[in-house]
Design a protein around this nucleic acid. Structure first.
Length: 265
DNA sequence: GGACGCATGATCCGATCATT
DNA sequence: AATGATCGGATCATGCGTCC
């Protein structure tokens, strides 16, 4: 059960998962600071897999695809608080504090912030918000406070936070081959590779000689076949891994392509 | 847990037109 | 010529239920 205690496009979010939860692939739309209060979070990003634990404070760069698994502690719940730094808030913060827009950020899109009691008390002040009413002014202040803290304790993150560039036209072949495991729509893929939907499709056909949807399914099934055949994984372990969301559909598609259900490979 | 079938809403495809 | 927007029909993914 996900509990979001904010209206509209919340900037602050309290999350609580009583059971192990493998979220369908999520798209990090805005930079987000996540503080884990209890439990563990396994995060698969394009560059690495992380296992964050209670007390970790993490900064995720926007415009990346990730897979998240939240694991509650024994006899407990997974809990975390998140602060979203949207572009508008960042731009006005930059203007107020005389921070110049940064060049294109090339560092890691996942940053573990330093362990510091200031983050700890900040996080507990956020957690308190799950109880009460939210208020636009207070929320705004909390967002600014978070930014101030990061600038104070993790200066290097400035380059990540204040890079306002939109995705550039990237190498489509490389991008697809590294991102096909993330289940996300073509429109988003187009955006992330710096293209309109129409140009994305055209470029795609030029490179892969097939349509995005067909290619993605074939590529995912191929990967699934590999994992099942070589690593002896089960269908239930594989389908989310390779970008399917539904086991029954995965089995169907698999059998359709290979003639045999996953269990018989 | 795993496989399969089915209904239905979501998404994709490819053609076409508009814009630069 | 390259790019972007839009559309209806086609296809697909998903969420169920059922069975083993």
């Amino acid at each position: 059960m996900r509990i979001a205690k904010n209206k509209d496009i919340s900037q602050l979010l309290y999350s609580c998962y009583p059971e192990k939860s493998r979220q369908p692939d999520s798209f990090v739309k805005e930079h987000v600071l996540i503080r884990i209060l209890s439990g563990n979070m396994i995060l698969h990003s394009i560059s690495a897999t992380y296992n964050f634990t209670s007390g970790d404070t993490v900064l995720l760069k926007r415009n990346q695809l990730v897979k998240m698994t939240r694991i509650p502690p024994a006899n407990g719940k997974y809990e975390s608080v998140s602060v979203y730094f949207d572009q508008g808030a960042l731009k006005s913060f930059a203007a107020e504090n005389n921070i110049h827009p940064q060049p294109i950020y090339t560092g890691s899109p996942v940053v573990l912030l330093t362990a510091n009691t200031l983050y700890t008390s900040y996080a507990s002040s956020l957690a308190a918000y799950q109880q009460g009413e939210t208020n636009q002014g207070l929320t705004g202040l909390k967002v600014k406070e978070g930014l101030m803290l990061i600038l104070h304790l993790d200066q290097a993150a400035t380059a990540l936070l204040f890079d306002f560039q939109e995705p550039e036209k990237t190498d489509l072949e490389e991008y697809m081959n590294t991102h096909f495991r993330f289940n996300t729509g073509t429109e988003r893929l187009a955006y992330l590779t710096g293209r309109s939907l129409a140009t994305f499709k055209r470029d795609f056909t030029k490179i892969f000689n097939t349509s995005p949807g067909k290619w993605l399914q074939q590529r995912r099934l191929k990967e699934a076949y590999h994992l099942i055949r070589e690593k002896r994984m089960k269908a239930s372990e594989v389908y989310l891994e390779v970008g399917f969301e539904d086991l029954s559909h995965f089995s169907f598609a698999f059998k359709n392509k290979f003639g045999q259900p996953p269990s018989l490979i």
